[in-house]
């Protein structure tokens, strides 16, 4: 029954493990297990029964206290730090690609982003000195949905990039039925990097996800 438990854990991702959340998780899991056992007793296949049970509750939006009070500035600071780390990592990963035209462009974009986010970080730090206790209500369900949308958009972006690269490089080969010619290791590297570099944009959805992940850490009061 372990994947039932996993499903319940996924439902509550982004929630601080309060007594209330623990209770709710255990109750939902208990009911899912009861449903699965009941379906199996009716002659269902075990896997089908689990799938059916899992499908009966796919979201807990509206079920828990959706509005959480968070300390806004420390939250933003934390998020910015993570984004900086992701950008730095991306920059380091992109170093070997400098030999290739697209790599130079990628590094430039990352560098500019680094400078922008860095400036934003400094501004935040300066603002923090004045009042650090600004509490803001954040709608957790909405944030979860936004993060989901960002992931979706990123996947679409990636697919378009890859399609574009494939079109530029190989369309005429496919159209005229010509064999693909790669003249040497450098040419090969150019092609591979054109596929790999768009992956670096993973920082964007990763940062969005981080916002959800660090949210519980900045919750202030309000919950039992």
């Amino acid at each position: 029954m372990s994947n039932l438990k996993q499903h319940v854990d996924n439902l509550f991702r982004g929630y601080r493990e309060t007594a209330q959340v623990r209770d709710m998780k255990e109750e939902i899991l208990g009911n899912l297990e009861a449903k699965t056992a009941d379906l199996i007793a009716q002659g269902w296949d075990e896997e089908d029964a689990k799938h059916h049970a899992v499908a009966s509750i796919t979201s807990i939006d509206g079920l828990m206290d959706e509005e959480v009070k968070i300390a806004m500035k420390p939250f933003l600071l934390d998020l910015t730090q993570w984004t900086l780390i992701f950008l730095l990592l991306a920059w380091i990963i992109a170093i070997p690609s400098r030999a290739v035209g697209a790599g130079v462009l990628a590094q430039l974009v990352i560098m500019i982003s680094l400078i922008c986010v860095g400036c934003w970080y400094v501004i935040l730090l300066l603002l923090m000195r004045h009042n650090s206790d600004g509490l803001r209500l954040v709608h957790r369900g909405k944030l979860t949905r936004i993060v989901r949308v960002v992931w979706g958009l990123w996947i679409v972006f990636l697919l378009i990039c890859w399609l574009d690269v494939t079109g530029m490089l190989f369309a005429s080969n496919i159209w005229f039925g010509r064999p693909i010619e790669i003249s040497g290791p450098y040419q090969f590297a150019v092609i591979v990097y054109q596929y790999i570099l768009p992956l670096l944009s993973l920082i964007v959805p990763l940062s969005a996800r981080t916002a959800l992940r660090i949210l519980p850490r900045h919750e202030r009061g309000g919950m039992a």
């Binding site: 939902i28 009911n31 009861a34 009941d38 009966s56 509750i57 807990i60 079920l63």
Partner: peptide
């Protein structure tokens, strides 16, 4: 308990109404 409540409701409606889990918990 939860799942049995849903079953009892389904039974009382002779299978014509099924309460969804999220509505039950709410």
């Amino acid at each position: 308990y939860g799942y049995e409540i849903i079953k009892a409701i389904s039974l009382a409606s002779q299978g014509e109404y099924e309460l969804k889990e999220p509505s039950l918990y709410t």
